[in-house]
Design a protein around this nucleic acid. Sequence first.
DNA 1: GGGAGCTGTCACCAAGCTGTCATCGCGCGA
DNA 2: TCGCGCGATGACAGCTTGGTGACAGCTCCC
Lengths: 225, 225
Amino acid sequence: MRLLIVEDTADVAEAIAASLGRANFACDVAPTLADARDCVAVQDYAVIVLDLNLPDGCGRDFLRDLRRGGDRTPVLVLTAQFEVTARVGALDEGADDYLVKPFDLRELEARVRVLTRRDAGRADNLIALGRLVYDATAQTLRIGDEVVPATRRELALLALLLANRGRIMAKDRLYDGLFNFDNADVGTNTVELYVARLRKKLAGSGVAIETHRGLGYRLELSGDG
Amino acid sequence: MRLLIVEDTADVAEAIAASLGRANFACDVAPTLADARDCVAVQDYAVIVLDLNLPDGCGRDFLRDLRRGGDRTPVLVLTAQFEVTARVGALDEGADDYLVKPFDLRELEARVRVLTRRDAGRADNLIALGRLVYDATAQTLRIGDEVVPATRRELALLALLLANRGRIMAKDRLYDGLFNFDNADVGTNTVELYVARLRKKLAGSGVAIETHRGLGYRLELSGDG
DNA sequence: GGGAGCTGTCACCAAGCTGTCATCGCGCGA
DNA sequence: TCGCGCGATGACAGCTTGGTGACAGCTCCC
């Protein structure tokens, strides 16, 4: 899943991106409102993490524009202790959650996860399908009672496919969800590679990744569970 | 969906057409303003991608003429880094978006998609008729609860017929929607072929493709659902 | 500093979509 | 009723697209 972090303080942004990156999110960082607008214009994000204090304006303006444009992407607002009215205002204007600085990175990670699953209509961080169980918090994949070791990229791909199960996902969309702008030069072939690797690990899970030539991939129940 | 790419540098145009072609857009390339005028005279486009620097004039003139003629086709302008005033001018004259060269092809594709969505103006990508449900986002065709695998061309044809359901569509118009000028040597027979293939997959859907000799095809409810 | 494992590239192979051809069926006008 | 022409459809070959093994680089951890 792909996230946008709108934060001007470089080391803070870096810390957030590193933390969420370890949680298997592909993160883009925008240090200004202008950058943020460019990002949302060309990329769909699962969640936007938005600092209110930015060099070229207030994050609330950005949020308001976003909502007026019909964009319903979940937004988590970061505020300083004293910005109470700004915080309230942000929620009124369409923010989905907020966090007061300084905050624990793990808490941020948890709240971001809550927002991602809200969009998928789930109540917890477990996704089960067939004999397969994916735990987004622990970042583990189980088939039946057995834990199957999987790498970060494999899990990220699985999360994307699970969130869109039954639907054909174009390779481009998988690519966008797996990599951020920093990895822009990665060959498109990589998606196929990770599909192949993930397929091996899903053997016997009752879940299969179907290929639809020219269209994309689709995760669905199969008979082999 | 059919796009026009107005760009004189052959390899750039080719790269754009290839990228957008993979995204299921049928692309025509016009290397000069004169060619572009010929194209828009005979064909409706979903989006026009317009380079400003052309051998026989400035793209802004073309854009201005287009708008004066009442044409509202979304236009995405390509500009060089230093052409700031041209960029602003293009927006004033009716461009819908711009991209500064050099750009990422995926970014172009994303922006083109935004423009096509804006024009369609519907958030719901489901089209239902009889027992048939076509999901344009997921690129899936369902009959009742069962997903019927279909290829890109078949889905493109179905989308065209659904968008014009109840109306007779001339074979030429179907042909234009499925292929671009580069595929001009494709036999006209192909439309009939894909109609036949699609018919097989629509069996039992309560929807039928009627043949109207000498006129074209028409998608309509039938009794077999 | 070294090793293990993850990551992404390349090359080659396989699969199936695509479009052509040929043949047959069918409707319509004479 | 016959003939013509448009449309339907099965078979096939080419080519694009995807699958996969091997390998090299990189990172992270010890």
